[in-house]
Structures are given as structure tokens and as C-alpha cells.
Computed example of a mutant assay.
Amino acid sequence: MLKRKGKLKGDKFDVFSNIIVIIFAIMSLFPLYWLITSSLKTSAAVVKMPPDWFPKTFNLSNYADVFEHNPAFKWALNSITVSLVATIALIIVGSLAAYAFSKLEFKGKNIIFIIFISSLMIPKEVMIVPLYRIVDDMGMINSLHGMIWPNVATAFGVFLLKGFFDSIPDSLRESAKMDGASELRIFVRIMLPIVKPGIAALFILFFVDVWNDYLWQLVVGQEESAKTLMVGTATLMQDLNPNFAYKMAGATIAAIPMLVVFLVFQRSFTSGITAGAEKG
């Protein structure tokens, strides 16, 4: 009887908790819903009060205008190039450094790691001026290189991946060395496949971070040909007589690649974050 009462109470709690989760999920998705539906309305319908919760007409001309009157394809290509190259470069550099800090022994390793990770406490905005001067001296202003390589010089990848390498038993590496495997072969053929969930999580987190790095891309990409999708979309907001539906369409176009990346890597991202939580 007590078991039955306990089970009934547990079922009621599950139902209640599921309702709460559903409510919060709807609240989280509502801004995305409002963005997409507003992009299909007229400008007057976007600011109408009370609002139309569902568009009465589907106005696709907003999307056509974004691509017809602006180099949106060029902006999108620039954003994809910057985000993809920066993320892949960070994964390569970060995984090598994380493996070295985790498995190799060298003088001053712990001190260097602490100094390295301490750089994460400095906001990027604080370094904008000196970083801009460095990039300018290297001739990378108004080029994608100026947006890519400063993003690679961050300790975030090392911080995230080191925990995954720490969880791998040292005996596995020692056995491989006894079999005659080189350090690079151990890293590529043994270690990287094991930390694949962490790499997937890092890929999504950093790709999204670089994609949304509006301030630095605005500072470096001043010419029209060097603008990214985030910066180009923001320029749509500078009209004196704004077309809000037109701007919503531009923002939706900028958000779509992020949704695609997350949906494609969702399972790997979830398993990577879960594994990282278990190791912590």
C-alpha cells in the first residue's frame, strides 16, 4: 500500500515537473517564433497593437528584398568562412595544448596553465584597442584574417578539453608507447577519438561565439566586402524610416545557420556536455 502511494506521488511529481519544463520550453522558443512570424508580416503589422499572434498574410518579399538590395550572400559566406576556419583552428590548437597540459611533463606546467587560463577572466572588450593596433600593423584590417586569427588565440578550447584528456587513464598512453607509438600517433589515433564528445561540444560553443562576435567583426570589417552577416544585418537597422519586417527577415537569415549547426550536432553536443559534467 505504501509502495502504491509512493508511486502515485512520484507519478504526480513527474507530471507536474514535465508541465513546468514544457512551459519554460515554450517561453524560450517564443522569441524565435515571434522573429520568424514577424519576418513574414508587413512593417505595419509588426508594430500593430494589439499584435497579431499569427500572421494573416505570408509576405516573402522581405526575404527577397534582403538578397536583392544587399550582398547578403557575400555576408553569409564571410560569416561561414570566419566561424568555420576559426573553430577548426581553435580545435587543432586547443586539443594539442590541452593534451600537453594533461599528459606531458615539462617544467613550469602548472604555473603556465594557471597563467594561460587566467586570460579567460579578461573581457575581450578590454583588449579591443591593443588588439586592433596589432591587427592593423599586420595589415589584416578589412580582411577575414583579422576576424579569424585573434579568435584562435584564446584559452577556452584548452580549458574545455583538458578535463576530457584528464579522464583518460595514463596507462593507455603508456601501453601505446611500449608498443612503439610516437607521441603524435598516440594523440591522433588514440586520444582524439576518446575526447570526440568534448570536441563536438567545443565546435558548437565556439562556432556560435564567433558567429555572434558582432563587436570585433564591426571593428575589423569596415568595408562592404569584409562585412559578415551579423554586421550586415545590423546595418539594416540604421534607416530613418525603418521597415521592421525587413529587419526581422535579415535577423532570421542570420539565425538560421545557428539552428542548422545545433540540430546537426545536437546529439554530440548533449553527450559532450553530459560527459563534461560527469567528469567535473
Rank of each mutant, 00 (worst) to 15 (best):
K9P: 01
A275K: 15
I128N: 02
V46Y: 05
L259T: 12
L172T: 08
L8F: 13
V47S: 12
P257M: 08
A25H: 13
L29M: 05
I194Q: 06
I141W: 02
P50H: 10
N62R: 02
E174T: 11
A200S: 09
L40S: 06
F73M: 14
S182Q: 02
K109Y: 01
L259S: 11
M127A: 10
F30Q: 03
G276K: 02
A98M: 05
S102E: 10
L144E: 05
L184I: 14
V66Q: 11
I168G: 09
L29K: 01
S119W: 07
I36S: 00
L161K: 03
F262Q: 05
K177R: 14
L202F: 04
L184C: 10
F106R: 10
G180F: 07
S102I: 08
D52F: 06
D136K: 11
M1W: 04
K9Y: 09
P71T: 03
D14W: 15
T274F: 11
L8C: 12
I256P: 00
L32A: 14
K279S: 04
M121S: 02
P197Q: 06
F244I: 12
F58S: 05
K74E: 12
Y63Q: 05
K48C: 11
A200L: 11
V135E: 04
K74M: 10
I88M: 07
F54N: 04
M248G: 01
V208N: 05
F113A: 07
S268H: 03
F30M: 13
M121G: 00
Y63F: 12
I186F: 07
F203P: 04
V195S: 08
L84D: 04
M191R: 12
G180P: 10
G139N: 04
A72N: 11
D213A: 05
F206S: 08
D209F: 08
